[in-house]
Simulated assay, not measured.
Amino acid sequence: MIDIRSSDRLSAAEVADVFALATAADEADGISPLSEDGVLGLRGTTHHHLLAMGEGGELAGYAYVNDSGDGELVVHPKHRLRGHGSALLAAAGDGELHFWAHGDDPGAQVFAEKAGFTRARVLWQMRRSLHDLPDVPLPAEVRIRAFVPGSDDEAWLGVNSRAFAHHPEQGRWSAADLRVRFAEPWFDPAGFLLAVDPADDHLLGFHWTKVHPAEGDEPAIGEIYVLGVDPDGHRRGLGAALSVAGLRHLAGLGLGDALLYVDESNAAAVALYRRLGFEVFSTDIQYAR
């Protein structure tokens, strides 16, 4: 029987072991097995962690489930096909679950289907060069300024909630979610752009950018981290103009490319990003039970 250890908070040593396992899987598969939610959850208390231990006491597999029933699962390459993945899924419980598989891998699909999961969501990573950006001016009576942590939090959370009212993750962000990201080493308020009405500084929309540092042979790359426009105060063309404003900010940092994540089913967002020159780079699949 495989030894599965369960915890709502991991020790520093356990976190290090999970990161080492994830690195080994990334090197073997060519894609990281943990999303931002998974990485942030390793250092917090919002996730239920499951550790599958190998015969020698080393970490053979890891899974987590967050408060919304979403999770991820990864098995160390040298421990695969030995039942660790199935044991982790069994330990996650019999209720409703949603697990992400990074990369549209046929093996992950077979594993998911055998466990009673079906394909539920498709998340695209799209990319484009930061050279030759289109010229998309801001609508009249709109100006852009940087986000001010502590002062703009409440207004931003309101716009984010309305802009992503039907999004299963983004629309539920709280002040605590903001603070967690403010503490991350990548956070830069200068790259968190707000579109406001100059008459009263009312928030109309935002483009929060992110920079992923160089890693190995991969150069640093920018990201459209979160882009939203308040549906209650929509200005025609603001989404496209904000997109380009953020991309120009990233280009000004000397970056060569930008990425973003978008649901395949979000036709309006996909159409906007294709108009701006983005193309699909990779695919993540969420399996549900």
Score class of each variant (00 low, 15 high):
H79Q: 11
L259F: 09
R119S: 11
G222A: 10
E36M: 14
P185Q: 08
H76N: 10
W124G: 00
M126D: 00
F206A: 12
S68A: 15
I31R: 15
S7P: 01
L42E: 02
N66H: 10
L138Y: 03
A165C: 09
S35Y: 11
A245Y: 03
H49A: 05
A288L: 10
G54C: 08
F117S: 06
G57C: 08
W186P: 01
V280R: 14
P77K: 10
S7D: 12
S86R: 15
G222H: 07
K114C: 05
H47W: 01
S265N: 06
N160W: 09
H249M: 07
I31W: 13
E96V: 13
E218L: 13
Q109Y: 05
V136A: 05
A271P: 00
H166T: 15
Y261M: 05
H79S: 09
S129Q: 09
A165H: 14
D217M: 08
L157E: 08
R145Y: 02
L97C: 10
V211P: 03
R162W: 08
L276Y: 00
G61N: 09
A101T: 10
Y225D: 01
G57S: 10
S161Q: 14
F117A: 08
R172M: 13
E223M: 12
G57D: 07
K210D: 04
E264M: 04
A91W: 02
G216E: 03
L276A: 00
G107D: 10
S11F: 07
H79P: 01
G85T: 02
L157H: 11
E279Q: 12
L204Y: 07
P213Q: 12
R9S: 13
Q286F: 00
D152C: 05
L260Y: 04
G158D: 15
L253H: 11
L255R: 05
S243P: 01
L255P: 00
D200G: 06
D105P: 00
H212G: 02
L194Q: 06
E141W: 06
